[in-house]
C-alpha cells in the first residue's frame, strides 16, 4: 500500500513540475505565475471532487454515481441567468464575485436540502429515486435557462456564456482565495464527522447500532458535498465524470475501505488527471478544447466501462 502511494505521488510531482516548467526558462516569472495560479485552481478542484464523490458513493452505497448528477451544474447556470435578468450586469451580485459566489453556494445548498428532504422523511425511498428527480430537474433547469437566455440583453449575454464553458480562464487570485477559504471552512466543519465516515459504509442500521447518529452525519456530509460541488463548479465549470473516474481508479488500486486511505489516494489520481488534461489543452490543443469537455470525455469513457461491467455482473 505504501509503495502505491509513493509511486502515485511521485507521478503527481512529475506532472506538476512538467506542467510548471515545460517550455519556459526561469526568467519568465510571469508565465510561471500564471501556471501556478492555474495549478492552485486544479488542486482545489481535485480536493473538492475527490471528497464529494467518494463520500457520496459511500452514502449511496453505489460506486458509479456522482453528486454532480443531482443537477447542480444546470442549477448554477440558472441562478446566474436569473440574477442577470433581475439585477442587471452592474448589480453587486453579479459584479462582485464574492457575493455572487456566496449567493450561488447558499442557493445550491438550499436546493439540495429540498431534494434530500424526501430521502430523510421516508427511509424506504431509495436514493436513486432522488437522483432521478435531480436528473429531471436538471433538464428542466436547462430548458428554463435556455428560455431565459433569449430575453437577456445581447450585451450582457457574454457573461452567461462565460459561465457556461468550463475552463481555467476565469479564475483569479481573488476567486481562488475565496474558494480556498470556503473549502477550508467546509472541511473544518466536516472534520468532526470524519471518523464516522467509515461506519456510514456499514449502512444506517449498523452505524446507529454502533452509536453513530447516521441521519445527522449524512445530512452534514450532503451539505458539505453540495458546497464542494458548487465551489468546483463555480471555479472551473461542469466536470460531471471526473469523480467517477477518480473513484473507479481508486477502488481498483486501493485495497482498504477506510476513507482516510481512499480520499488521499483519490486526490492524487484526480490531480494527475486534471493536470495532464490541462497540460494537453495548453500544449497539444492550443487552448482549442476546454478542460471540461476533454476531462468529461475521458471520464465518460471510463464510466461506460464501469457501467457495462456492472450491468453484466
Amino acid at each position: 500500500m505504501r509503495n502505491k502511494f509513493i509511486i502515485l505521488y511521485s507521478i503527481v510531482c512529475f506532472v506538476i513540475i512538467l506542467f510548471l516548467v515545460h517550455g519556459v526558462s526561469f526568467n519568465h516569472s510571469f508565465i510561471i505565475f500564471g501556471r501556478l495560479q492555474r495549478l492552485c485552481a486544479l488542486l482545489l478542484t481535485a480536493a473538492a471532487i475527490t471528497y464529494a464523490t467518494l463520500v457520496f458513493q459511500s452514502i449511496t452505497t453505489n460506486k458509479i454515481l456522482t453528486p454532480s448528477l443531482m443537477g447542480y451544474e444546470h442549477f448554477y447556470l440558472l441562478i446566474q441567468v436569473v440574477l442577470l435578468l433581475l439585477c442587471g450586469a452592474n448589480s453587486i451580485l453579479i459584479a462582485s464575485k464574492t457575493f455572487n459566489f456566496l449567493l450561488a453556494a447558499v442557493l445550491m445548498i438550499l436546493y439540495s436540502a429540498l431534494l434530500y428532504r424526501g430521502f430523510f422523511k421516508n427511509r424506504n425511498k431509495k436514493l436513486y429515486f432522488i437522483l432521478l428527480i435531480g436528473l429531471v430537474l436538471s433538464i428542466f433547469f436547462h430548458s428554463t435557462t435556455q428560455f431565459l437566455q433569449m430575453r437577456i440583453d445581447p450585451n450582457e449575454y457574454a457573461y452567461v456564456q462565460q459561465a457556461m464553458f468550463s475552463s481555467l480562464g476565469r479564475t483569479s487570485v481573488a476567486t481562488l482565495f475565496m474558494a480556498f477559504a470556503l473549502m477550508l471552512f467546509t472541511f473544518i466543519g466536516l472534520w468532526r464527522y470524519f471518523k464516522y465516515l467509515d461506519l456510514i459504509n456499514l449502512g444506517r442500521n449498523y452505524a446507529r447500532g454502533l452509536g453513530v447518529n447516521y441521519d445527522r452525519v449524512v445530512r452534514w456530509q450532503l451539505a458539505g458535498i453540495s458546497i464542494l460541488v458548487s465551489v468546483s463548479t463555480a471555479l472551473i465549470g461542469p466536470i460531471t465524470f471526473v469523480g467517477i473516474f477518480v473513484s473507479g481508479i481508486t477502488y481498483r488500486l486501493v485495497t482498504k475501505a477506510s476513507h482516510r486511505t481512499t480520499i488521499s489516494f483519490g486526490f492524487g489520481v484526480a490531480l494527475i488527471l486534471l493536470i495532464s488534461a490541462q497540460f494537453l489543452i495548453e500544449r497539444l490543443f492550443n487552448y482549442k478544447q476546454s478542460l471540461g469537455v476533454l476531462v468529461n470525455l475521458f471520464g465518460g469513457v471510463y464510466f461506460m466501462f464501469l457501467l457495462f461491467k456492472f450491468l453484466r455482473k
Partner: peptide, 29 residues
C-alpha cells in the same frame, strides 16, 4: 446514542456489503 450503543447491540437480518474490508477490520468496528 453513544451511550445506548454500549448498552445494546443489534444484528440485522440481511447483511450485504460491497466493501473492501477485512474480517478483522469489520469486527474492529
Amino acid at each position: 446514542l453513544a451511550e445506548f450503543s454500549m448498552k445494546l447491540a443489534y444484528l440485522q437480518q440481511h447483511n450485504h456489503l460491497d466493501l473492501k474490508l477485512t474480517v478483522a477490520e469489520l469486527v474492529a468496528y
